[in-house]
């Protein structure tokens, strides 16, 4: 069943230097429970595509549906949680209060709020940090808290825009592992923007390779890796082959120019 469906999507920004084709002819179907990574050089439109799904940008052509609705309707129905590149926790709120932010806006009851905070903090392994302020947490913990915030209202779709881009490799590996475990437990549909090939291959069921000017999809790779993925799967022959194919796809996109 297709949760997100894009057909011949175009997005053109009008700038002073003329029109910029951020997306051109992007067609993609994402099924329920998929973990889809978008990878490509900067300017390939991967973030823009994610923002279109979220209803934060409006496409100038083609069709896009989320849960069978327009992205804007889906946003109003609070169909997805969005994790940004920076954690963006409010410094004047504790971790618990930060996670409550969407719940307050969506008018959950007080008991329900407390319950959900507790359960998502467990999910991202931050139990006991509820009353800490963001500055008291490391960068990786802050990003986990921001994931917890996106999970709090239990939307079926999780959109993540380079959430681990600013973190060091060791923390990133750890968070990737946790994210997979979380995905397995919650069975959410995840859209994940990254510029790291190993990250994309390790996490995804589908890897969408994109290339710039105009932003378009050059390859969609279905991963043959099992759902259960220990960290050392990255040394396996299969993993290396997929990574190779992603790299080839990225290179091909560049040779087109």
């Amino acid at each position: 069943m297709s949760v997100i469906s894009a057909n011949a999507l175009d997005l053109t920004f009008e700038t002073n230097d003329g029109p910029v084709h951020a997306l051109k002819g992007v067609s993609l179907d994402i099924n329920k429970g998929d973990f889809v990574s978008f990878i490509g050089p900067s300017g390939c439109g991967k973030t823009t595509f994610l923002r279109c799904i979220a209803g934060l940008e409006t496409p100038t052509g083609g069709t896009l549906t989320v849960n069978g609705m327009s992205p804007d309707e889906a946003r109003q129905a609070r169909a997805y949680g969005y994790v940004f590149q920076a954690a963006g926790l409010y410094p004047w709120r504790t971790i618990g209060q930060n996670i409550k932010l969407p719940l307050e806006i969506m008018q959950f009851g007080r008991n329900e709020q407390n319950q959900r905070v507790k359960s998502v903090l467990e999910l991202v392994e931050l139990s006991g940090f509820e009353n800490k302020y963001p500055w008291q947490l490391s960068g990786g913990m802050q990003q986990r808290a921001s994931i917890a915030r996106a999970l709090a209202f239990d939307a079926d779709i999780l959109l993540m825009d380079e959430p681990f881009g600013a973190l060091d490799e060791i923390v990133r590996d750890h968070l990737n592992e946790q994210l997979l475990a979380l995905w397995a437990r919650t069975e959410k549909t995840i859209g994940f923007v990254t510029h790291s090939i190993p990250e994309a291959v390790y996490l995804s069921t589908h890897i969408v390779v994109m290339s710039p000017r105009p932003g378009r999809i050059t390859d969609v790779i279905e991963s043959p890796l099992p759902k259960e993925r220990p960290l050392d799967i990255r040394d396996s022959q299969e993993f290396i082959e997929i990574a190779h194919r992603v790299r080839e796809g990225l290179r091909a996109g560049h040779l087109d120019e």
Binding site: A54, F84, P102
Partner: peptide, 19 residues
Amino acid sequence: MQLDLMQTYNASRGEVMRK
């Protein structure tokens, strides 16, 4: 980014102001 975050929650202008 913080304004976008509020938009993903479909927060009203008043809520963006208050919170």
